[in-house]
């Protein structure tokens, strides 16, 4: 939802890149490098160093640090959400209904909607 709302001016924005990952064009500038960096960072693969360098080359060193920061932030937020059993906020549930169905998000093991 946050990408959809913040990316209204992004031509060709493709939300499927969030779920499908590398190989799916997101439309976000330097999105391929960012997605590859996230995937390598979270899976701890040997490709991490290569993905990191590619992201740094595409975006610059400061942006690389910031991308790593966002990864860290959402390693936190996902654990808070899943450890406290919260449902998605009501207004978010309403405005994301179609998108959740299209992307298959309702199939996630932690899917919880407001009662």
């Amino acid at each position: 939802m946050m990408l959809r709302e913040s990316g209204r001016d992004v031509e060709g924005l493709n939300l499927h890149a969030i779920v499908k990952g590398s190989g799916t064009f997101s439309g976000v500038p330097c999105g391929e490098e960012l997605v590859a960096f996230v995937e390598a960072a979270l899976t701890g693969t040997p490709e991490l160093a290569t993905a990191r360098q590619a992201a740094a080359d595409a975006l610059g060193a400061q942006a690389l640090v910031d991308a790593a920061a966002v990864i860290g932030n959402f390693q936190r937020m996902t654990r808070i959400a899943d450890s406290t059993g919260i449902a998605v906020d009501e207004r978010t549930a309403v405005v994301t209904e179609g998108m959740r169905a299209e992307l298959g998000l309702n199939e996630f093991v932690s899917a919880r909607l407001p009662l």
Binding site: M2, L3, S6, G7, V10, L13, L15, A17, I18, V19, G21, S26, V28, P29, C30, G31, L34, V35, F37, V38, E39, L42, T43, L59, A63, D66, A67, V70, I71, N73, F74, Q75, M77, T78, R79, A81, D82, I86, V88, L105, N106, F108, V109, S110, A111, R112
Partner: peptide, 21 residues
């Protein structure tokens, strides 16, 4: 980063964590 870039990183990180939220 731009906000769409931030949210792309955030969304992909959440998806890899199987986090619905």
């Amino acid at each position: 980063l731009s906000r769409p870039q931030i949210e792309l990183v955030a969304g992909r990180t959440s998806a890899l964590n199987d986090c619905f939220y």
